[in-house]
Write a protein that binds this DNA or RNA. Structure first.
Lengths: 201, 201, 201, 201
DNA sequence: AATGAATGAGGCTTCATTCAT
DNA sequence: AATGAATGAAGCCTCATTCAT
């Protein structure tokens, strides 16, 4: 088999297994059994168990990064709302296509390793910074109300992660209507859950 | 040493280590070295590595459950807002006192075991259900605007988890002013981030 | 409690447990739990696990030795047959009273230790020598036919051991009629299983 | 090395050690040291310590079963006596070839485990049933005198086991003349030890 | 005379990685 | 390009024994 093909094949099985059972509960033995290759072959393509997991995680994070883009506000750009929705849709699409990737991101990578944790944190911090600057721009444009944009960004990140986790847990709803879900979430984040003009008693 | 004391001592060291390095990266050898007891002593007090971790996690979840209470709306109850803030404050307090517990909750317990994962999910689902029913009550009272309360609950849970995670990562801010943090988060969740009357263009 | 009493009590529980579950599968923890004494107390009365087992085994072998007596042929002695039957009856009686002792003898002591094995072998060899000399006397008296008395003694020992083992396995028959059993066995050993005057074709 | 070869090699060393020192007194460390393989290699071929012992015991019992055959009395069959002697010879041959197997059977397997004990008991019960039915056939043919065939079978089994044990203990005699030994034993069992026409006084 | 907390050597098993073919 | 037998460090757990109270 072509090296590139073989590599991809092993990666695929590893991704599925890591996603299903987590890093520690997935053994090299299982990966090669699933991929139908010999032990030695695995080490021909990957340096170590940690190595293949790192590659998977790097690919995933890079892929995500690519799909999340700063909202452009220059004249001639599409509406901010449609850009936001597109961002969300692109991320949802990735996880719809490769569900185990979501599993790896949310369950597999945490707690494996100090280094992995740091990498994840850095990634999330990146996203948060992106959101924060977007919120700041929004404030300057008079769209976003005065608030601690850093905290708001953390909140947004949490919302996003939890919705993804919910998707992972309850499959049915996911396929149901991702667009509506995205809209609802966006709505809650932008307008809150209270009636207009009402405050918590 | 008194059994109860010794037990607590070992639990304490285990909590710290599990919190710092995760379940898999913490060995019994490290726990007993930290606690300054012999190997056999550990097994005098705990059935297994999994056993002590389970106990830690159970204690933590029970503790959390206790601190999170349904908001009472009967006449004579304190204001809803103060009850909400108290809930948040009690949880923050727990983690301020025992930071590794937060670490265990957020990083240590995930991916250890199918059973632990299920336990965590169940716990979070519990919290989400509590929030959902609170939101529904709010709707009936005309305080909460019409929206999918289940999704809103998931959002609230995500907000909460992420704020905790942020706390774990950036210590300084935590101690700084937890009340202000709680208020800000509550504000975003209830009113959203947009200016009144404005919608995303 | 009186030292002597306590000692006997612990010995009793140990005997039962060793008999039921064998030497290796019986722990000090179980013995003291059954006897209701503390760990330290055990070591006040016995040197070690091996020690208490050895004592048990020694007692048993001594007891057995006592119950097996050379058949006396001097004028005035009881009939040889009744002496033989008495020997058997005394042994059966011991095991009827303390069944676990039989269990220890047949299952518990073998394979524990080279030294225990040697002790058992020596004991059995003793019995065999006793039988051999009895058979030789029988030959001189013209009662026992010419044969290799050593082999015959080994055979007799085997018969005896197996009948005891059978007793241990199938309780009902044991209580049924030990005298009849003894007679039947003695008969087979003395006359064989073939018809008179017939040989295996 | 070829897997089959390696497996056999490890099995061989394990058999010797289990036979010499018993199950509990033989450690994996000793087995792999004797076989000259690494710790992991052992577990490549056997599931566990219990696993390899079970395999050894199963092989042994199967082997023995194969060597012990019902005596055929159909016209044209070899003489009953020669068939009996052949049975005995085949068993003796097995143990002459692989002495530790005999050791495992007689000393190693007892008291290891409830399950092993049960397996052994079942095996012996099988042999006893075979003998019993043979004796009953003999009675119908008028060769075997009236007696309790079940007890006679137990006796026969005991004779057999003890002779084997004697062989194990006193090597010299074993090689000396197995045929003569077999004949003598068979003789005692069939004709008894008494002079014709004489009974125990 | 008794207690029971503490010990630590010893044993079994797993699994990522290597390397000769 | 592929194989799979072999490795051994590392981890978890048991349990007979000791000793301070």
């Amino acid at each position: 088999m072509e090296p590139r093909e073989r590599r991809a094949q092993i990666l695929g099985h590893a991704a599925r297994l890591f996603g299903d059972k987590g890093y520690y509960d997935t053994s090299i033995a299982e990966i090669i059994a699933a991929a139908g290759v010999a032990r030695g072959t695995f080490y021909l393509y990957f340096e170590s168990k940690r190595g293949i997991f790192e590659e998977l995680l790097n690919n995933l994070l890079a892929d995500l990064h690519e799909r999340i883009r700063t909202v452009e506000t220059e004249p001639g750009s599409p509406s901010a709302r449609s850009q936001l929705v597109d961002n969300i849709a692109r991320v949802l699409q990735l996880f719809a296509d490769e569900r185990h990737m979501l599993s790896i991101l949310l369950k597999g990578a945490a707690g494996v390793d100090r280094e992995f944790d740091a990498k994840l944190n850095e990634f999330y911090a990146d996203i948060a910074r992106l959101m924060e600057s977007s919120l700041t721009v929004g404030q300057e444009m008079g769209i976003v109300r005065p608030c601690d944009t850093r905290i708001a960004a953390v909140v947004a990140l949490g919302v996003f992660k939890e919705v993804l986790r919910d998707l992972l847990e309850n499959d049915e709803r996911a396929a149901a209507d991702p667009a509506k879900l995205a809209a609802e979430v966006l709505d809650i984040f932008s307008r809150g859950v209270l009636m207009d003009g009402v405050s918590i008693p």
